[in-house]
Design a protein around this nucleic acid. Structure first.
Length: 415
DNA sequence: TCTGGGGTCCTAGGACCC
DNA sequence: TCTGGGGTCCTAGGACCC
C-alpha cells in the first residue's frame, strides 16, 4: 500500500507558477493561512493560522492569492500519474491518495521502486514535490508519508512495523487530534510505543470504544481497509461566516436562502436528494448548536430547503434567547438517495399532512429550480442567484474557493 | 487574537418495535 | 404487571481531517 501526498500543495503550486517565490516564505490566503511554504513553516507558520499571527511570526512572509483553478488542474494531473501505475487509486483530497500496487509489481517492480518512480515523474512532468509512504496497510502508509515529508520516501519493511512506529508521537496517528492527544498525555501516553503498552480496556475508557479499539488495532498493525475507488458523498452542505451580526429573521432567511440554493443546486446536479436537514448556528465565542429534522421523503428543491432550514435556525435561536448575535450559519443535507430527473418531476402521491408547508413540492424539481439550473449550465453559477445581493456587505471568500472545497470531498471516480 | 469552507465518524439518550 | 433483551431510527453534540 502506498500513500502519496503533495507537499505544502497550494504554496508549492504558487512557487511553481511564479519562480520569484521559490525559496521564500509564502502563505496562500489572507485572513487565514490556507497553506504555508516550508520556508514559512520554519518560522512556525501553519495552515489554519490567522494571517495576523503568521505575519507576526514571520515578518518577511509574503501572502499570495489563490489560483484555485490551477490547484485543481495540477492536483488532477498528479492523480493521473498515479493511475498510470494502478487503477486502484483512492483519492482522499485534492492533494493525496492511497494506491494499492500489489498487482502492479510485475510491471513496475517492488512497491518502493514504484514509489520512487511516482516521485520522479511528478517532479519531472508536473514540477511539484510529493512524499510517499510505503507499508503493508493504509494507516501505516499514511504515517510513513507524514514522516517522509518534505519531498521524501519512507518504506516500512514487513516485520519492521513496531520498530518504525514505537518512537513516533501519537499525534501522527490519523484520528488523534488535540483532544485525544491531551487525554493520552494525561495518562502518560506520548509515543505509539506507549500506546502499544497500554491495555485496550484502558484506552476504551480513556477515549471511547471506537477510538480505543482503533488505536489498539493500529498498535498491533491491524488495518483491514482496502482501496475504495468510488466514494460517494453521504452529505452535502454549505456554510457562511457572518462576522458577528444581530440574528434578525431577515438575515437568517436570506443567508439560508443563499446556502440552500448552493446545496440544493449541487444535489440536483448530482442527481440526488436527501431526507435529513441539519442547520448549525454559531454564536459569539464560537459556541454553536445544531438542529435537524428527518423528513418522510427526500428533497432537493431550493425553496423547500430554504424554508425548512430557516425554521430550524429560528428554533435554535428561540432556544438561546441570551445569544442575540450569530457568527455563522450552515446547512447540510444527509440521508441521500439517488433521485433521477424523472422522479423529481413527480411530487404527487404524498398526503399533504406528511410534509410541512412549503415542502410539498420538495421532491419536485420546481420550474424555478429548472430555470436556474439551466441558466447556470450555460452561463455559470454567478449568472443568477442570491449571492451578489445578499452578501454585498459581507466579506466573502472567493467563489472559486467554495467550488474547490466542494470538489475536495466529492465523488472521486467520475473523471 | 478567534479565522474559512466542506466533509466523516462516534457517542449517548430517547422513542419505538418485537 | 415493571421485569428482559435486542435492534433500529432519530437528534444533538463533539472530535477530527483536508
Amino acid at each position: 500500500m502506498l500513500h502519496a501526498d503533495l507537499d505544502a500543495f497550494y504554496a508549492s503550486v504558487e512557487q511553481l507558477l511564479d519562480p520569484s517565490l521559490r525559496g521564500r516564505p509564502i502563505a496562500v490566503g489572507g485572513g487565514v493561512v490556507l497553506a504555508a511554504s516550508y520556508e514559512a513553516r520554519a518560522f512556525g507558520v501553519r495552515g489554519g493560522m490567522p494571517g495576523r499571527q503568521a505575519r507576526a511570526l514571520c515578518p518577511a512572509l509574503q501572502f499570495v492569492g489563490g489560483n484555485f483553478r490551477e490547484y485543481q488542474r495540477l492536483g488532477d494531473q498528479v492523480i493521473e500519474v498515479l493511475r498510470d501505475f494502478t487503477p486502484l487509486v483512492e483519492r482522499i483530497s485534492i492533494d493525496e491518495a492511497f494506491l494499492d500496487v500489489a498487482g502492479s509489481t510485475h510491471l513496475f517492480g517492488p512497491p518502493p521502486a514504484i514509489a520512487q518512480a511516482i516521485r520522479q515523474r511528478v517532479r519531472d512532468e508536473i514540477g511539484l514535490p510529493i512524499s510517499v509512504g510505503v507499508a503493508g496497510t493504509k494507516h501505516l502508509a499514511k504515517i510513513a508519508s507524514q514522516v517522509a515529508k518534505p519531498d521524501g520516501l519512507v518504506v516500512v519493511p514487513v516485520g519492521g512495523e513496531q520498530q518504525f512506529l514505537h518512537p513516533l508521537p501519537v499525534e501522527l496517528i490519523w484520528g488523534v487530534g488535540p483532544a485525544a492527544a491531551a487525554r493520552l498525555a494525561s495518562a502518560g501516553v506520548r509515543t505509539i510505543g506507549d500506546l502499544a503498552a497500554t491495555p485496550n480496556p484502558y484506552l476504551r475508557h480513556l477515549l471511547g470504544t471506537a477510538v480505543g479499539d482503533k488505536l489498539s488495532a493500529l498498535a498491533s498493525n491491524i488495518d483491514p481497509r482496502t482501496i475504495e475507488r468510488d466514494h460517494t458523498a453521504s452529505s452535502v452542505g454549505a456554510q457562511a461566516a457572518l462576522g458577528l451580526r444581530d440574528a434578525t429573521p431577515e438575515l437568517v432567511h436570506t443567508t439560508l436562502g443563499y446556502l440552500a440554493d448552493r446545496v440544493a443546486g449541487r444535489l440536483r446536479a448530482g442527481g440526488c436528494a436527501g431526507r435529513t436537514i441539519t442547520v448549525r448556528v454559531r454564536f459569539a465565542q464560537l459556541r454553536s448548536v445544531t438542529r435537524s429534522v428527518t423528513l418522510p421523503a427526500a428533497i432537493c428543491a431550493t425553496i423547500a430547503l430554504t424554508d425548512i432550514a430557516t425554521e430550524l435556525a429560528l428554533t435554535a435561536l428561540r432556544d438561546h434567547p441570551d445569544e442575540p448575535r450569530i457568527s455563522l450559519l450552515a446547512v447540510s443535507v444527509s440521508q441521500l438517495v439517488a433521485q433521477h430527473v424523472l422522479q423529481l418531476e413527480l411530487p404527487l402521491g404524498l398526503p399533504d399532512d406528511e410534509l410541512r408547508p412549503g415542502t410539498k413540492a420538495g421532491a419536485a424539481r420546481s420550474d424555478a429550480d429548472r430555470s436556474v439550473d439551466a441558466i447556470r449550465t450555460r452561463f455559470g453559477r454567478g449568472a443568477i442567484g442570491y449571492a451578489a445581493i445578499v452578501f454585498s456587505d459581507v466579506r466573502r471568500v472567493p467563489e472559486q474557493f467554495r467550488e474547490l472545497a466542494e470538489r475536495k470531498s466529492g465523488r472521486h471516480g467520475s473523471d
